[in-house]
Design a protein around this nucleic acid. Structure first.
Lengths: 333, 333
DNA sequence: CTGTTAGCGCGTTCAG
DNA sequence: CTGAACGCGCTAACAG
C-alpha cells in the first residue's frame, strides 16, 4: 500500500492540515518540519497528484497534441516545449492525433479530463470545433504552425518563406516552377500556396498554371506521386518548390528513383538532417523550429499565470533560405 | 463552471448512485437513462476522470516512456501501441526521457503519480532502479528493445541480427569489418557487439581487432565521427556494420561528405525511408517494429487484466536482412 | 433497480 | 502556527 497524509499523521501525531501546509510551502515550525520529513522518508511518501489536482484544480501538467508523431519538425518542437515547461514545474503529456480530426477531438477531451492546465496543439486542419472542450473549462490553448482564430498562435511568415524560394529560382532563370503543397484545408498550406502565386506573379508577371500547383496529400507518398505527376506534364516545370518537410522527403525520394534525366531543380522545406544526407546539398527553406517552440512555451506559461494580453496573440517568425549546391537550383541549359 | 453529477441530479431528481451506474455500464431503467442523457446533453456533461481515478484506482490510461522522441523507430512503436491500447479503452501518455537516467526516473514518478494503470518503456540503459516507483504501486511495466531482468520484455534476437549482416559481408569477401555500436551499458548494444564478435570468429576464424569495435556515442554525430575514425585507422576496414538506426544515419552522412574514395561497404539498421532516400540502395537489418509494438501492447493488456504468467515474460522476435544494391556490400577489387 | 452512506487523498476555510 | 471540519467529483458498499 502507498502512504498518505494519514500515515504520516500516525507517525508524527500532527494534523492533516499541518502536513498539507508543509507540502504546499506554508509556514510550519522547524521541529515539525523535521518530524514530517523523517516520516516521509521512512514511508517513502509521494504526494498524490491526482487527489491534489482534484482539490486544487491545478494539475501542474500541460498537454501537447501533435498532428503526427513521426515528424522531426514536430518532435523537435515538443522536446523544446517540454524542456521549458519542466523548468517551470510542469509535466508534459504528449498525444498524437494522427492527422485525424476525430481522434484529435478525443485526445482533447482526454487531456481536459485529465485536468491539464494548458494545451499546445499542432492542429490537423483549420476546424476549431475541437477547441470547445478546452474553452469550456477555461484551459488556455496555444496553436503552433497554424493560425487558429480566437486562439494564441505561433506561426512563421509562410508567404515570405515561399517567396524567398521563388525568388532564388526565378533569379536562376526558371519560369516554369511547380509547387508541391497540401490542400487548402489548413491555414499553413493556404498561405504557402497563396504566397507562391503572388511571388510568381511578382517575379514573372504571370500566374502559374493550375496544373503546376495541384494539391497533394501531405505525406511522403504524396510528395513522390506529386513530383512524378509534375514531370509527366506536357510542359513540365524546370523547378519545384516543396511546401513542407514530408513533401520534400517524398519528392527527394522520387528524384532519387527517377534518375538524372529531366531532373528539375528543387527547393525543399526544413530538415537539416536531410540536407546532410543528400548530395549535392539541397536548398531548403528552414523554419526557426526552436524559436517556434520557445515562443509557444512562453506564451502558454504567461497564460497559465493568468497574464498576457486580453486578446489572442499571434506571433509570426521569419524563415531562412539555406542555399545548397548550385547545381540543385540552377536552370539546366 | 463545469457540470457534475450534482447538476444532473438537480435536473433529473435521481440519486448520485444511479447516475454513477449509468456512466459505468450498470443497469438503469429506460426512462431514467433518457432523463440522464437529456440532462447530460443540456449541461454538456463530461465525467471527471481525475475524480473517477482517485476513487476507483483505475485511470484507464497507460504511460509510454521513450529514450528519445526523434527516432522513427520509437515513434512507430508508440503509434502502434497507442492504437492498440485505444481499442481497449485506454488513453496513452507519451513521455521523453532524453536518454537521461534522472529524467527517466522523474518521468516514471510523474506517471505513477498520475495513477497510470501500466507503463511501456524503452529504457535509457540497463539500470532498473527507476522501475521501483512502478513496482511500489504494483503498476505493470513492459520493456521494449531492452531486456530488463524481472520485467516483461519484448526484444529482437540481436545476435542473430548482427550475424546475418556479418555473414553477408564475409560471403562477399570482406575480412576486415568494423562495427559502429554504442557502449556496453545497454543490453541491446552488449548483445549486438557480442553477436558481432562471435559471428566474426565463426566466419573468419579470428576475433576482430578492438579498434574495429570501439564504442561510439549513440547519435547521428557519433555515427559520423565513428565512421571517420574507422577510415583513418592504419588498416581501415573494408566494410562497416552499424548497430542501430541513428548510427546508420550518421555513418551514411559521413560517407556522403567524404566522397567516393576508400568508401567501405555498409550494412545499417532499420529505417526503410532511409533506404528509399539513398542511392544506391543500402543493405539494412530491419526489425519487426510493428510486431515489437503489438507484442508489447498485448502483453501489457494481459497484465492490466491481471492475467499472464506469474513470472516475467521475454518475447524475442526475429529480424530480416534487406539486401540492397550489390555495390554497397561487395568487396572492391 | 434505486437511494443512502461512507469514503478515495488532499486543500482550505475558520477557530483557537 | 496548528487543528477540526468540510468538500473536490466520483465509486462502492449496503439497504430498501
Amino acid at each position: 500500500m502507498v502512504a498518505t497524509y494519514k500515515d504520516i499523521r500516525r507517525i508524527t501525531g500532527l494534523s492533516l492540515a499541518t502536513i498539507s501546509k508543509y507540502y504546499n510551502g506554508g509556514n510550519v515550525l522547524g521541529p515539525n518540519r523535521e518530524l514530517i520529513e523523517k516520516a516521509a522518508a521512512e514511508l517513502d511518501y509521494q504526494v498524490n497528484n491526482v487527489a491534489r489536482g482534484l482539490r486544487s484544480r491545478r494539475s501542474m501538467t500541460v498537454g501537447v497534441i501533435l498532428d503526427e508523431l513521426a515528424s522531426t519538425f514536430n518532435t523537435t518542437i515538443v522536446s523544446r516545449i517540454e524542456e521549458r515547461l519542466r523548468e517551470a514545474g510542469y509535466g508534459t503529456i504528449i498525444c498524437d492525433s494522427r492527422r485525424d480530426a476525430e481522434s484529435q477531438a478525443d485526445v482533447m477531451r482526454f487531456l481536459v479530463g485529465k485536468m491539464v492546465d494548458g494545451i499546445v496543439v499542432i492542429p490537423v486542419d483549420d476546424d476549431t470545433s475541437f477547441l470547445a472542450a478546452a474553452r469550456d473549462r477555461d484551459v488556455p490553448v496555444v496553436a503552433v504552425d497554424r493560425l487558429m482564430p480566437g486562439t494564441d498562435s505561433v506561426v512563421i511568415d509562410n508567404r515570405a518563406a515561399i517567396a524567398s524560394a521563388v525568388q532564388l529560382l526565378v533569379t536562376a532563370g526558371h519560369t516554369a516552377i511547380g509547387l508541391l503543397a497540401g490542400p487548402d484545408t489548413t491555414y499553413t498550406m493556404r498561405e504557402r500556396r497563396a504566397g507562391f502565386r503572388d511571388a510568381m506573379q511578382d517575379r514573372t508577371g504571370l500566374l502559374p498554371r493550375a496544373e503546376l500547383m495541384t494539391p497533394e496529400h501531405v505525406s511522403v507518398e504524396g510528395g513522390c506521386t506529386g513530383l512524378r505527376r509534375l514531370l509527366r506534364l506536357s510542359a513540365p516545370p524546370t523547378a519545384v518548390v516543396c511546401a513542407n518537410y514530408v513533401l520534400t522527403l517524398g519528392a527527394t525520394i522520387a528524384l532519387n528513383e527517377l534518375g538524372q534525366e529531366l531532373r528539375p531543380a528543387l527547393v525543399g522545406f526544413d530538415n537539416l538532417e536531410l540536407a546532410r544526407l543528400i548530395r549535392p546539398r539541397p536548398t531548403l527553406v528552414t523554419q526557426p523550429i526552436e524559436s517556434l517552440a520557445t515562443e509557444a512555451a512562453e506564451l502558454l506559461l504567461q497564460r497559465l499565470s493568468g497574464g498576457g494580453p486580453d486578446d489572442p496573440v499571434t506571433i509570426t517568425l521569419d524563415t531562412t533560405l539555406m542555399v545548397g549546391h548550385e547545381s540543385t537550383y540552377q536552370l539546366r541549359p
